[in-house]
């Protein structure tokens, strides 16, 4: 019985370590140090109007799936490149950009 339990625990520990290794190895680590040169904005600090940013360089706006979840509430909030957007803002940016690039 002890041997079986030991095997189970090892399996659990292995799975844990494997998952950690997979996540750590799967992409570049984005830290604040690496992005410190960019304009940074706190979640509640007034941000530049995102539309101006996209209008300036015509880059597509951030997509919800590319962002981290900040709050699952009303409204849903996402963090993209250090800035926090509500779901409404992301939708508005996306639709505006799509309309301009039809």
């Amino acid at each position: 019985m002890d041997v079986q339990k030991h095997v189970r625990f090892r399996r659990f520990a292995g799975l844990t370590a494997g998952a950690a290794a997979l996540l750590l190895a799967s992409g570049p680590v984005t830290s604040y140090a690496q992005t410190a040169g960019n304009p940074t904005v706190m979640a509640s600090a007034p941000a530049d109007p995102p539309m101006k940013v996209s209008a300036r360089n015509d880059a597509p706006p951030p997509k919800a799936e590319d962002c981290a979840i900040v709050t699952v509430s009303t409204p849903m909030k996402y963090a993209c490149n250090g800035k926090v957007y509500t779901s409404y803002e992301l939708q508005h940016l996306r639709e505006k950009w799509e309309a301009a690039h039809k």
Partner: peptide, 9 residues
């Protein structure tokens, strides 16, 4: 290291 948003880093 400081966080720009709620869970950053």
């Amino acid at each position: 290291f400081g966080a720009r948003w709620r869970f950053d880093g």
